[in-house]
């Protein structure tokens, strides 16, 4: 699966890093999203989808199923 990140919308909530810790992390200073793995394996798919839904700023857009 593939996804896009709209970095300037990120509010640093860290919801993504909680939902999909193998794919997303946060910058320690302001909490802004850090992508650990831009092409997550199929077993991470559900977690990434969950992160996209829960993100309060709709930063993560799924582009390829």
């Amino acid at each position: 699966m593939k996804f896009d990140i709209e970095l300037d919308k990120c509010v640093g909530a860290g919801v993504c890093a909680i939902a999909a810790p193998k794919v997303f992390d946060q910058n320690d200073d302001d909490g802004i999203i850090v992508v650990l793995n831009p092409s997550p394996s199929p077993d991470q798919e559900a977690a990434v989808r969950d992160a996209a839904v829960r993100c309060p700023a709709a930063v993560i857009k799924l582009t390829e199923q």
Binding site: G12, A17, D25, N27, D28, D29, D30, G31
Partner: peptide, 11 residues
């Protein structure tokens, strides 16, 4: 403030 990772641990 300014401690996003520590914050998640505390969470």
């Amino acid at each position: 403030v300014g401690a996003a990772k520590a914050l998640r641990q505390w969470r």
